[in-house]
Amino acid sequence: MYKQIFKRVLDVIVSLLMSPFVLIITIICGVAIIIDDGFPVFYVAKRRGIYGSTFNMYKLRSMKNNSPDIRDKDGSTFNNENDFRLTKVGKIIRKLSIDELPQVFNVLIGEMSFVGPRPSLVSREYSELNEFSKKRLEVLPGITGYSQAYFRNSITQEEKIQKDCWYVEHVNFITDVKIVCKTVKSVLSRKNIYKN
């Protein structure tokens, strides 16, 4: 019942309550981004959603305009504290995870949830994905998730997928609350923001 109904109800209520604050922070950060590196304010990324659907995920832009797309060996996004592509404002909003805040609006319109596997890249056709990659798509992707909260960037992409599959099979209110609390602790401690 929670997975099918209450989780979505909670997402809508919390995202509506957060929206005014997110809007204010977005405007303030948006002005800082424009002063630092010009337009655009947002980074719009095509991501894979529930059951293989695709959607546009919004983030505050933290990289310089026309930055190259760099990937790690496992296909995941390159992420490093000394990344030359980050702007001055980008380094700050990345450390504080403020760049993820616009995804609250993705939650509001039903493309994402507050808790779920992080949205995956649209690099292959859905039919080409293995069973584990498809399994993690049985729930809405989240702003934060089990692997994001507990491990962030300290484990491999393959390990993240395995842990996301565990979450899909154990979705419940208590687990989601634990993940949110762990995420807050992780953000405040600033651990594992970047890959080793």
Score class of each variant (00 low, 15 high):
F105K: 07
E100S: 15
S113D: 05
T87N: 06
S113W: 06
L108G: 14
L96I: 08
L101D: 11
M112T: 08
F84A: 13
Q103T: 09
P102G: 13
P119C: 01
I93E: 01
F84E: 09
I109W: 15
R85A: 10
E111M: 07
F105C: 12
M112C: 05
E81P: 02
P119Y: 00
I98H: 09
T87Q: 00
V115W: 05
D83F: 08
V107I: 15
L86Q: 03
E111D: 15
I109P: 02
L121C: 01
I109N: 12
F114Y: 01
S113K: 04
D99S: 12
V107H: 14
I92R: 08
R118E: 03
F114N: 05
G110K: 11
M112N: 09
S120Y: 02
P117F: 03
E81T: 02
S113N: 05
R94I: 06
N106W: 14
V89P: 00
L96C: 06
S113G: 06
V122H: 13
L121K: 14
G90L: 11
L101A: 13
R94L: 05
R118S: 04
S120T: 11
M112F: 06
S97V: 10
I92D: 04
S113R: 04
E100M: 13
N80Y: 05
K91A: 04
I98V: 06
P119K: 12
F105H: 11
N82P: 03
L96N: 07
S97I: 00
V104Q: 13
L108A: 15
K95C: 00
K88I: 04
N106I: 01
K88F: 00
R94N: 07
K95A: 12
K88V: 06
N80T: 07
I92M: 11
G116T: 08
L121W: 02
K95G: 01
V104E: 10
R94P: 02
I98R: 02
N82W: 07
F84H: 03
L96W: 06
S120P: 01
I92E: 08
N80H: 08
L108M: 15
I98Y: 08
V107K: 12
S97M: 01
E81S: 14
Q103D: 03
D83M: 04
F105N: 12
N79T: 13
N79L: 08
L86K: 04
N106A: 08
L101S: 10
